[in-house]
Design a protein around this nucleic acid. Structure first.
Lengths: 191, 191
DNA sequence: GGTCGTATAGTCGGTTCCGACTAATAGGGA
DNA sequence: TCCCTATTAGTCGGAACCGACTATACGACC
């Protein structure tokens, strides 16, 4: 199997939207924002138009009409193609099934935690824990009032996941800070 | 405060190495690999040389000698500067203290989980769970025999963290798959 | 009725990142 | 001795990504 032609996950988001109905690029971005998907996908005007072009080049989507309002440049409305629908599902399936290596900044930093010295490391971890606690609260609020409005849980399922992941990170940060403070995580000298 | 001049975490890894002793670029890469840091940092020959150049341009590191062996191109050996040492610690501190938005592929996929349909979604989550279980085992082995060799825990602390994160992800995947199978996570039709 | 903020819609140039490719040497075996 | 492979060391062109900037329309407010 040749590797996927497009790897940018923003493309996944756009395809997913176009499966609902045709849209023009700016509308895709604002719809994603409305649905709070801008925490899940990095939406940047530059990347947006690049990605749309790339999707079109590979025929996963295609222009269906160009609307002109006033005397300003035309907006091009895109729809998904049959190929696009197939690629979308296959890609999704693969992303869920198979963990791939990613390189989060926090892991990078933790791998040099020693360089901060025990005091400062414990401080920093505790501060992180506080930030994470706030984010978890935010997620809980968002979940509560979205479900309160009658939306199905599945629409916010990724928020449930990140909430869970943050909680795990929070637990680790607190536990590790405590171990440092108690001396049960010994600190070698050569740092 | 102006934003950091360099954001690539590979730069953090390189700086960290150069705090130990001066090295030439290729040696940095192979040392990182020896220490299993290639799962934490994305090491790519292109990025490596670009990053070294960028570090040098900003005077976080500087060339200390050029060694010539045989009649082949010179290898440039770099050392950290005082500025580099300061930036390293400040950057590290910030990365640990403050969570930043990242956009992992799995979260992207989960946010469109509905499109897979309940059957396939549960299948995919269960397969992911199996992959994660394997990785966790691998991490346990690595931890056991590194500590067995007398290395301090702190040298593998990031492995402890990712192990913890994977375990949380595994739990979520299994639980969510079970909820789908049992019907307690209802599936709307419009997917 | 001017102007100030906000929403709409997108452009463009630069940096960063990537990975296939090049090339020389050392070591080991037939 | 010759060849094959692994290791050392790095180059280069293109793709991806970013974000500051441009520009119009619309409503609100003084």
């Amino acid at each position: 199997m040749p590797p996927r032609k497009i790897r940018n996950t923003l493309a996944l988001a756009l395809l997913g939207l176009l499966l609902e109905r045709p849209m023009h690029p700016y509308e895709m971005a604002s719809t994603l924002r409305e649905r709070y998907k801008d925490t899940t996908f990095k939406i940047n005007p530059g990347s947006l138009y690049d990605t749309v072009e790339s999707l079109a080049k590979h025929r996963w989507i295609e222009p269906v009409e160009t609307v002109r309002e006033g005397n300003r440049p035309e907006r091009t409305v895109y729809a998904h193609t049959e190929l696009g629908r197939q690629e979308f599902v296959a890609w999704l399936d693969e992303l869920v099934r198979t963990p791939v290596a990613e390189y989060p900044k926090f892991v990078a930093a933790v791998s040099y935690l020693g360089a901060l010295g025990p005091e400062r490391a414990a401080d920093a971890l505790e501060e992180r824990a506080r930030h994470l606690a706030e984010r978890i609260e935010g997620a809980d609020t968002a979940l509560a009032d979205t479900v309160g409005k009658g939306a199905p849980r599945l629409f916010m399922i990724e928020v449930e996941f990140v909430r869970h992941a943050w909680q795990a990170e929070l637990d680790w940060a607190r536990r590790t800070a405590a171990e440092i403070r108690s001396g049960s995580l010994p600190w070698p000298d050569n740092f």
